[in-house]
Structures are given as C-alpha cells and as structure tokens.
Design a binder for these strands. Structure first.
Length: 342
DNA sequence: CAGATTTGACCTGA
DNA sequence: TCAGGTCAAATCTG
C-alpha cells in the first residue's frame, strides 16, 4: 500500500518534472524562430505530462471520501475516458438527490446586458430547460431553475439557478451545478475557436449574434455574453486537498490548438474553476496573458467559498499569443520548488 | 404536435 | 418544521 503510494508519488514527480522541462524547452523555442509545429508538439507534451500527473493524483484522491467526483472529473479532464462515463451513469436518480449537496457548485454574477429582462436568456453556450421557479425568502426576485435540455436523452445532470440580484436587478447570480456530460459540452469548447476563425477568415460572414460582445469561456467552457463580475466556487467537499497555494502565469495559446487548453472543465470544477473563470481566461477575444492565482484550502473546515474577483481591465504583461510561461519555482512552496529544481 | 414554460404539489435536508 | 429544490401536469408557443 505504502509502496504503491511511493511509486505513485515518484511517477507523479517524474511527470511534473518532465512537464516543466518541456515548458522550458517551449520557452526557448518561443524566443527562437522554431516552427509552429514544434511549439505545438511541445505544448502537447506538456499537457500530456500534466494529464498523467493528474491521473496519478486522482488515484490517491479516489481513496478519500469524495473520491468519485474527483476521479470522475479527472478522468474527464484526461480526455473523457469511458470510466468517467460509467461513473456518471451510476448516478441514478436517488444518488443524484442524495449527492445534491455534494455536487460541484459555483456561482457567478453576470451583468444582464441582454436587455431582455429574461434570466434564462443569458446565453452561456448550453441549452437549458426551465423546470421550476421559486420565491426565495428574503429575495425580491424569484429564482429560476434550469437543467440541461439533454438531461433525458444523455443523462446530463448539469443544472443552473438564475436569480436576479436584490441590490442590482441588472445583475444575475447564476449558480451552476454539476457538469455537462452531454455532447454539447465538448461542442462548446470546440466550436468557440472555430467561430473566431470564421470571423477572422471571413469578416463578411456574419454570425447570428455578431453584434454582441465576443463570447468568452467560463470555467465550464460556457460562453458568457454578459459581463462577468465575480465568480464564487462553493462546496468543494473533497476532504483532502492536494494542491498547494498556486500561482500560474497563463497565456492563451492561440486558436489552433484550443482543444488542448490547460485545465478543461472537469478539473476546473473541483479545484480551479474560480480562478480559471477570469473573464479573460482562455478568451479568444483577448489574447493578452493573464496571471491567475488560486488558493486551494487544505483543511476541511475552510474549504468553502473561494472567491476570486475577475479583473475588469486588461493590464497584463505584453506576452504574445503563443507565450506559455510556467514558473514552477514561484508557483510552488519552497520544498516543492526544490524538488523540481533538483 | 413536439418541445418549452409555468406553477402547485411534493420531497429533502438542515 | 420550513426553505430550498424538483417533479409533473397543464399550458403555451413556434
């Protein structure tokens, strides 16, 4: 048992070190005149290393109380392995009710720029079906309950609750629950960059919402039409947290390889969603680099409500689209840094 | 007519 | 016990 853990840790460290090396190689390639293919290859290697590392982490994590969700998420992150699908299917109705509280949940506040006054009209890239509305005690406005349109067909358990803010009725508080397991989840991620390409390649071709602000990805790969104000993550009930406080300079990697975006939705749900949900994060419309930081709490008692305010202006370093800087030495606490630099 | 929305009833969890 | 969440029949809409 212990041997297994040690072996796993060694593998994990090995993968992370490898990832770092690839990142360093990529950095040197960026300053040289290497071909785009070479850079992409390195990016793929980096991502692969992290995927492996994360899968190794998940092995340990699944032994902890809330292992299912973690494993599920990580498997999905790695590329939607069949295992995650099986696990999702195991979520029968009773289970889903029992685990209602344990489902990943995060709230974001969105400025209602649609002018429609219709909460559900906030287009986040998914199709939702309203299944309820309720007056909430102490709230002026009722809360709308939405679930994925594909719930019946594909068993997608994603839901969201939309409630207008008391203080500012133009602000919608949207609480997302669960993750999309339906096909549109991947569809959203894949079509977004394409859309950008269409605009770039053929300016005459008008998309139906061409006069809206450029769409942005939120933690789940959702599209935001409105101006996102703040994102909260709630109820991470994983009992043990495995990530130290973690800063991670990130840059958009351009439109060619968006499928390989770091930290896709499932992982974000568990640990990273708050920070990755910065409006500028992975935003095709804003190639500027963003520094995002996250603090994952390590004790059970102070896990909830990681609140990360999204920057409202672009004040980032002038790094170009293809820049990807991963400074592990500054990201990890001293002992981890030493491990990586040894 | 199929799919979405509304809304009162019912269920769950704190 | 009660507020929040979900169900499901009725109704609406394209």
């Amino acid at each position: 048992m212990e041997e297994t853990m040690k072996w796993g840790q060694l593998n994990l460290m090995s993968e992370l070190i490898q990832g770092k090396e690839f990142a360093e190689q990529l950095c040197s390639h960026l300053s040289s005149s290497s071909s785009l293919e070479e850079k992409e290859l390195l990016l793929e290697k980096i991502l692969l290393s992290y995927e492996k590392a994360l899968s190794l982490l998940s092995v340990g994590e699944t032994e902890v109380t809330n292992g299912k969700m973690m494993m599920d998420s990580l498997c999905s992150f790695i590329g939607g392995s069949p295992k995650s699908e099986v696990l999702d299917q195991d979520f029968n109705h009773k289970d889903s009710i029992k685990k209602r509280k344990t489902m990943p949940r995060w709230t974001k506040q969105v400025k209602d720029c649609s002018g429609t006054g219709l909460e559900g009209s906030q287009d986040d890239g998914y199709s939702w079906r309203k299944y309820g509305q309720k007056d909430i005690l102490g709230s002026k406005f009722p809360r709308g309950y939405y679930r994925c349109t594909h719930r019946n067909v594909q068993g997608c358990l994603a839901t969201k609750q939309v409630q207008r803010s008391d203080e500012d009725p133009t602000i919608l508080e949207i609480t997302y629950r669960g993750r999309h397991t339906c096909t549109q989840a991947s569809h959203v991620k894949k079509t977004l960059p394409l859309k950008r390409k269409v605009i770039e390649n053929n300016p005459m071709q008008k998309h139906q919402d061409h006069d809206q602000p450029l769409l942005e990805l939120n933690p789940e790969g959702f599209l935001n039409v409105g101006a996102e104000v703040e994102v909260k993550t709630e109820e991470f009930d994983t009992k043990e947290k495995i990530f130290p406080p973690f800063c991670f300079p990130y840059a958009s990697i351009g439109s060619e390889n968006e499928d390989n975006l770091l930290f896709s939705e499932p992982l974000i749900e568990n640990h990273f969603m708050g920070s990755l949900s910065s409006p500028k994060f992975i935003s095709p419309a804003t190639p500027e680099t963003n520094i995002f930081c996250l603090n994952v709490q390590t004790s059970e008692s102070d896990v909830t409500d990681t609140v990360i305010s999204a920057p409202t202006s672009v004040t980032n370093s002038p790094i170009t689209d293809l820049d990807l800087l991963i400074d592990f030495d500054s990201c990890f606490p001293p002992n981890e840094s030493e491990l990586f630099s040894s």
